[in-house]
Design a protein around this nucleic acid. Structure first.
Lengths: 116, 116
DNA sequence: CTTCGCTATATCCTGCTGTGCATAACGAAT
DNA sequence: ATTCGTTATGCACAGCAGGATATAGCGAAG
């Protein structure tokens, strides 16, 4: 079988018409946690700093308390760190994602029967 | 509370990098079933005929047997009809969607606590 | 045999998303 | 003080998904 068949799942936490949280933001939080800065995280993920910053900004605005703490100044000066809220929200989101994935997998076999 | 908080869910059946089935295609199938033609369905949904046709084409190419039967000729001549496969796939997809939605709703309350 | 509304397809155009680049201010280390 | 790597922000540009439009051929009904 040369064709790859799979179910692509996406869950987004919405606040009004803004995307408060989603798979991309979850990945970004992980990268920030790993690297200690928004810009390093962006480089690491191959996305523009602008985009990474916008994602962080949206998150922080959408939640009651910010998910990322940031301060200017480079070379061990400023940078960005996950807040407890950030860690908790990401954790809960990943749990939901995993549960949804497991459920979708139960349907996958049946639906794939008809796929070429 | 002026802000609307909700979880936006999307499940797509993929074949290689093509979207074989998803929420838009499910809606389109319903509209085709209702109206009896691709073009009427497109008008009904406020989308371009081009897009509707492309969606149908992708579906039919991705599945072993077509989901939509179509024939040229207007005014009760040609048109489009769902095949049994089309109906069955759509049905199964909707069932999965509903199950995923129900599961996501279980997580929603908890995640919304932190949302503004 | 003309007309109507459809399938099928190509081409052009537009709007949006995200990148690239530029700038300013900042904080720690050297 | 100078340098370095950040945060924070604006703006111009590209790529692309989808809309608008045009055309050709078809089939049943009148």
């Amino acid at each position: 079988m040369a064709s790859k068949k799979y179910i692509k799942l996406r869950a987004r936490l919405m606040r009004d018409e803004e995307i408060a949280f989603g798979p991309g933001k979850a990945d970004l939080l992980a990268a920030i946690d790993r690297t200690g800065s928004i810009s390093a995280a962006a480089r690491d993920m191959g996305m523009s700093y602008r985009r990474a910053w916008l994602l962080v900004d949206t998150m922080n605005r959408c939640f009651r308390s910010p998910l990322v703490d940031s301060a200017p100044g480079g070379k061990h000066g400023g940078g960005a760190r996950l807040t407890d809220t950030g860690r908790r929200v990401r954790q809960r989101y990943l749990e939901m994602e995993a549960a949804l994935r497991a459920l979708a997998d139960e349907f996958e076999k049946d639906l794939n029967k008809d796929l070429r």
